[in-house]
């Protein structure tokens, strides 16, 4: 095919083009290990030897000290969550982050979790 593969990008797709550029043009699908509320914290790994993009470094900075969810990271980077997940996958591969998956996504919520949240809301 003579047309470049990206030719379906139209004016409306502007932000997507930008985001894909930021992930080095990779469009691999969302990795299963990240949900919107998976919590992320930076490890103290020496990241100097890895080829980090500015966005990787921004993520590590914002996840130092206190954990952030994938949704918060994506919002702060102003990128779709699917794109943030690709960057987070890179960081996970190099051991630069720890992740905590949300509780038992496939199951009905546990009573003790509901109770803990209820108590927390009442305390607000």
């Amino acid at each position: 095919m003579s047309e470049p593969e990206e030719s379906w990008w139209d004016v409306d797709a502007g932000p997507i083009v930008r985001s894909f550029a930021r992930t080095g043009g990779r469009t691999r699908p969302t990795r299963d290990e990240f949900n919107l509320i998976t919590l992320i914290i930076a490890t103290n790994t020496d990241t100097a030897r890895h080829g980090l993009e500015p966005e990787h470094i921004m993520i590590l900075r914002m996840c130092t000290g206190a954990p952030l969810s994938v949704a918060e990271i994506a919002a702060r980077l102003d990128m779709p969550a699917t794109v943030a997940k690709v960057l987070l996958g890179d960081l996970l591969d190099m051991g630069a982050i720890h992740t905590r998956a949300p509780i038992a996504l496939a199951e009905a919520p546990e009573i003790h979790v509901l109770q803990a949240v209820l108590d927390g809301i009442r305390r607000l």
Partner: peptide, 30 residues
């Protein structure tokens, strides 16, 4: 016109907020 498979993209925005319930538990509202 490009000859590639037709694709449409939709961007869906959601608002969310956070409530720290305890040291162990964080609640997100979407």
């Amino acid at each position: 016109l490009s000859g590639v498979e037709g694709k449409t993209t939709t961007t869906v925005a959601m608002d969310f907020g956070r409530i720290t319930i305890s040291q162990d538990l964080v609640l997100y509202l979407f």
